[in-house]
């Protein structure tokens, strides 16, 4: 069977701009004053990562802060383009949003408005949004907060709404980036249950977490990133072991 996502020798470089001139004014002054000139350095946030994800697989991504996990997800969604290598979808899979804290919600709009906005950005018609809306409210348990602007939500409520919306969009591939950190235990359990259900339906999940237990219990395979390189890919318990060794050294 074809893999669902093929990450083929992907590298991603960012230009770190020291003394950053992101204004015309400072660029102009930089012509005359060395002190104001920007210097550039290339940061390889991902280095030659090769990975393929099978349909229906649950893959965990672990690694230190800044090791490139979120970037890998962004490359899969297509928000970032790889500097080298390719991300391919041999089956033409549809990858939805990545779920992370604050899924592109607009702070001034209410929860309800954000659900409608978010869903229509993902290509749902008004009728379809109305269909999924009750499900979103029910899952997030934010019934009485739907008319409150998002900026007044707590971070956990934010995460709830984001997750509830994303799962109700019913994507083929679920990309989850460290959203449980702020959810309470009841919500974490609910999310895991929902993700189990997704897995039961044969959907693919890529899951970033710093919670070793969750990765161990939930994922079939785990991938350890360090400074942008893939250092281990295989059984979750083994990956966690490697990770702890890495942290200790």
């Amino acid at each position: 069977m074809f893999p669902l996502i093929e990450i083929d020798n992907v590298s991603k470089a960012f230009t770190i701009r020291h003394n950053r001139t992101n204004s015309l004014k400072s660029s102009f002054i930089g012509i005359f004053h060395k002190r104001f000139r920007e210097t550039k350095e290339t940061l390889w946030a991902l280095k030659n990562v090769t990975l393929s994800v099978a349909p229906g697989e649950t893959l965990g991504l672990i690694g230190r802060n800044g090791s490139g996990k979120s970037i890998l997800l962004r490359l899969i969604v297509g928000i970032y383009r790889p500097t080298q290598g390719q991300v391919r979808f041999p089956n033409g899979a549809r990858v939805g949003a990545m779920i992370e804290l604050g899924v592109g919600f607009h702070p001034e709009l209410t929860g309800r408005e954000n659900v409608f906005l978010g869903a229509s950005i993902h290509g749902l018609s008004r009728g379809e949004v109305e269909e999924i809306y009750p499900g979103v409210v029910e899952f997030s348990e934010l019934d009485s907060f739907m008319d409150v602007p998002i900026k007044n939500y707590s971070s956990g409520m934010h995460a709830r709404l984001g997750f509830a919306l994303a799962i109700n969009l019913n994507p083929q591939v679920l990309l989850v980036d460290e959203i449980f950190a702020v959810g309470d235990e009841a919500f974490q359990r609910k999310c895991i249950e929902k993700m189990e259900e997704f897995r039961g339906e044969g959907k693919t999940i890529i899951f970033v977490s710093h919670a070793a237990e969750t990765i161990k219990n939930f994922c079939e395979r785990a991938c350890l990133l360090d400074h942008g390189s893939l250092v281990f890919l295989g059984a979750p318990s083994k990956a966690i072991e490697e990770y702890h060794r890495l942290l200790a050294s």
């Binding site: 962004r74 969604v77 928000i79 990545m98 604050g102 899924v103 592109g104 919600f105 607009h106 950005i121």
Partner: peptide, 9 residues
């Protein structure tokens, strides 16, 4: 920016 960084569109 918030939206552009999170969703492909």
């Amino acid at each position: 920016g918030g939206l552009i960084r999170k969703v492909w569109l």
